[in-house]
Nucleic acid binder design. Sequence first.
DNA 1: CGCCTAAAATCTACAATGTAGACATGCCGG
DNA 2: CCGGCATGTCTACATTGTAGATTTTAGGCG
Lengths: 242, 242
Amino acid sequence: MARTMTIPQQTAGDEAGSGARKNRLSREVVLAAALKLVDDEGLEALTMRRLGQALHRDPMGLYRYAANRAALLDGVTELVLDELAIFGDDPDWQGQLRRIAHDLRLLALRHPNVVPLLVTRPLSTPLGLRPLGTLRPLEQILGLLIDAGFTASNALHVYRAYYGFLYGHILNELQEFIVDPDENEALLRLGLHRLPPKEFPRLRALAAELADYDGAAELDEGITILLSGLSAHLAAPLIKKV
Amino acid sequence: MARTMTIPQQTAGDEAGSGARKNRLSREVVLAAALKLVDDEGLEALTMRRLGQALHRDPMGLYRYAANRAALLDGVTELVLDELAIFGDDPDWQGQLRRIAHDLRLLALRHPNVVPLLVTRPLSTPLGLRPLGTLRPLEQILGLLIDAGFTASNALHVYRAYYGFLYGHILNELQEFIVDPDENEALLRLGLHRLPPKEFPRLRALAAELADYDGAAELDEGITILLSGLSAHLAAPLIKKV
DNA sequence: CGCCTAAAATCTACAATGTAGACATGCCGG
DNA sequence: CCGGCATGTCTACATTGTAGATTTTAGGCG
């Protein structure tokens, strides 16, 4: 399950690229390079030409590993989601869900530029046609819940509530924390200061609170609330667990 | 609040464009046309040239109403969010939050192509520098909660949990319902059928369940769970705070 | 009425993108 | 050695955002 794959060997070998030509290309290498590009310089930096020059290859050659740019993006999201480990056999499903939530959060913080892909790519692809790597978490979590005693139908509901909340939290957190860590607080306050005081009194009053945001704690709280709520509403195997 | 603006008069009148030249342009008209374009043909159809020809104007002229394409996108999200009405003076904050959730859900269903903007644009703009129309819901909901008796800090927490869940739900729902309503179910099942049965047994077994998804009910359930959980965890004015 | 200036509209141009299609070049079995 | 096929490489083209020059329009003033 847990693949946690890292970039094979020569991650960058950027400009010098003396003898980098030789080594055979593979889908994994291409995707890894693409991911690195996105992580380092943002989504719009991932162009065929730039990726080609990062790999010291002709841009056209990349079409052998991804049918087009969209497929490349899908590949990147798949690669990132592969970093997420889900163990379907853990009887402590609540603990498992909690751990996964934190893992996914950290993953999002590690690859903030990929998050837009994570949330928007599925919007333009019918569920059944998505890359398998994207669907695997869904399947595994369903398995986890069903094994824990939920009916298939309820497992789906739980999954939806859970993942919905999870993605929502990630979006929230990434919005409030600026990527640039230096002028973070300054920019934040400066930005808030720009707001007309009469129209945005509470927002401005919360500047300090907004500045230090403990995402992990907030996420954990939310998960707790959600899980207890779910246990109460659905005939939950929570009691059976102990 | 609720503006629900439509394009003034001549919505399309494409090539003929007899006397359409006359009427003065305005930011609202431009944004409305842009929104229509996105609604009708998707995000990537919104190019300067296409928008220009939809308005029978030179594409360059549009830069008078939006500094660049990104600003145009921001304008569209602002316009869409303007459709959401929030009344800060309602003492029944839970009912209010529930209503807003449903309204936002319907809004997302009305403008599915705009949802990617709604969730990703804020990721690339520091909170304080976002279009005011985007921040207004936040401010208003904070007001609602504070008026209801929450401390400012707790109001922020509630807001985060609430909006997080809400956005998550919307993403979930839009992912599962294909935009094209005709071959929806067929495509879905066909898509699922493509999945390797050994790897995705539960997902495939849930095909029927996935096909009829009552988003409103699911959202309502989730909100209920969330609100009760929040009331329990935060010293909530639900039980009449001292 | 005639002109002159500022603003608004339009045109031209350019760099960058995704990608089709033609071309070259290596590799490998006969 | 030689055909053929996979694999790289080059050129070309349509489309994009947008800078800058150029034209057209509007309006004040003698």
